[in-house]
Design a binder for these strands. Sequence first.
DNA 1: AGCCCTTGTCGAAGCGCTTCGAAAGACGAG
DNA 2: CTCGTCTTTCGAAGCGCTTCGACAAGGGCT
Lengths: 333, 333
Amino acid sequence: MATLADVARHAGVAASTVSYVLSGKRSVSTATRRRVEHSIELLNYHPHAGARALASSRSSIIALVVPLRGDLYVPVMMEIAIAVTTTARRFGHDVLLLTNEEGPEGIRRVAVTARADAMILMDVSMDDDRIPMLRDVGIDAVLIGVPANARGLACVDLDFAAAGARCVEHLAGLGHREVAFIGEAEAVYRRRSGFAERTLDGVKASAVARGVRVVHRPCQASHEAAAGTITRILEDRPGTTGLIVQNESVIPPLLSVLRTTGRMVPEDMSVVALCPDQVAEQTSPRLTSVRIPAEDMGRWAVELLMRRPFDGHELVLLPPELTVRGSTAPASR
Amino acid sequence: MATLADVARHAGVAASTVSYVLSGKRSVSTATRRRVEHSIELLNYHPHAGARALASSRSSIIALVVPLRGDLYVPVMMEIAIAVTTTARRFGHDVLLLTNEEGPEGIRRVAVTARADAMILMDVSMDDDRIPMLRDVGIDAVLIGVPANARGLACVDLDFAAAGARCVEHLAGLGHREVAFIGEAEAVYRRRSGFAERTLDGVKASAVARGVRVVHRPCQASHEAAAGTITRILEDRPGTTGLIVQNESVIPPLLSVLRTTGRMVPEDMSVVALCPDQVAEQTSPRLTSVRIPAEDMGRWAVELLMRRPFDGHELVLLPPELTVRGSTAPASR
DNA sequence: AGCCCTTGTCGAAGCGCTTCGAAAGACGAG
DNA sequence: CTCGTCTTTCGAAGCGCTTCGACAAGGGCT
């Protein structure tokens, strides 16, 4: 394995010159630069990451903390993770994968050992216990999700409140007056996941504004839970003609239950989902939906990080986009 | 940030002694050890990862290469990734997330810059182009999946051939004589994904042995594709009474199509799936299935790596486990 | 011609840790 | 009492890179 010293010797220059060719931090004459580059090529030189990290006290690594919960829709998480990774590469960074198994201590560990020089946290709850730790160790971080006290922290998220509102508006615009919001599992609200809470707020506020009656029903991902939830909704509020679904895993069982109970979508029941486009297009009929811009969120998170230092106004709320597909229609009278 | 030298000074010993306390590579008297540990505690000392990597030429990082394809079932990938990460932590290692976006060059980069000192590759195809690179740079690696030429490489996988066979056996045992195997998307076979190919082989071989007629139909993840596939199967082979499904995303649309066309599961049609237990238990009826042991695969991969050096016999094929649930029943005559 | 500024290059001093050889004692055997 | 053997600790030499101050050379001014 060739070292920087080998390159320097081969090119007949000082080690520092090679370093400057590599980093561009000082100007180097074209002639020397070419000579150095040639030697690098020839010796197949690659800088040693550890040595770099030590000398420059920058690791070029971003730590990504992913949730290991079973009750969150995994493909979205994965898509964010992939977007983070590919974007980080574009900035010459690599991504370290962290789970919450270690708890907030994992964050401390990575920060104080200088394994990573920045972090991205996913699935941030309103009163997330990782946030004090983040502040304590003082590592640069971007949150995917918006906690209650976000002061001084950079955050990226879909504007879930607006997204919820958008769903209600769409249904209201089609004449629906009784709507049910099938949300995430109870546990998700209990732990105060920001996105779930905000969506609910948005739905409620918009419903009030539009004169739509809305009931909210948390729902788990099993067929039984979905069946139970929809049955209960129809019993309690037989006049319900619109459904907003946030928990992606509920969609297949939900559609299946509607079908078996003889309810046509969209003729008898309009359905609008908050889910990735891919999911909305796999069903029959295709679902009118507000997409979860997973890739954008991952990309933004990294870009914010790269634009450091933060100026204190780092809150990126991505506007919701509603795509009309085949699952919503005017309310029948 | 305290350094090792600070600790040494504080404890009144040489730096090397502190190092030996930390690594345990040489014996240290109980008295000094305690003194050093006390200083470490007091100064809140944490070793600098980069410095360590440089001095010891070991980074304590495992690189995990995840596929970024849309046509593979994501939750399984995620579960493997999580299992790899948590297991790696148990061995004091961290995990670097790599996508295939960089292609095989990404492997070289990570290896030659000494970013990671071992790798785990997911979604390995029979003639995977990353394998020559692996051999070339000579980094220790474990493959999740088994390529055609695995000589000298450690591999972990579910024994998909046995799994496929197990499905056929189960159906054959219930008296089914005409069975359809709904597989992964065409593209998955075209790129020669090992697991898809092996499953098919296992299904075919077992079918021959059991005197069962099997047709194989690749199938994409959309509702239309599923509907088309099942319709075609029933037209071509009206006597089909058993279905084996490998593509998890096809399950919801498949069940929905069967229901709408008036076919009861399991009375009219037995269904056995190759999928994570979680998926099998979300449907109604619950699916008889061979589980994908994602967590075991991830854990094994790391454990193999930690047991290095490899002795040349590193092929872990996890035995399939079939769980009977409500979706299979004796063939009606 | 003399001065200053810019540009390009060098050397040296670390960054914080590991590891190896050797020194210093302690101790039992002869 | 001496010798050899352990055990415990130390010091020094790196690991491969970055960065800073210094210096030499060249140019444009006055």
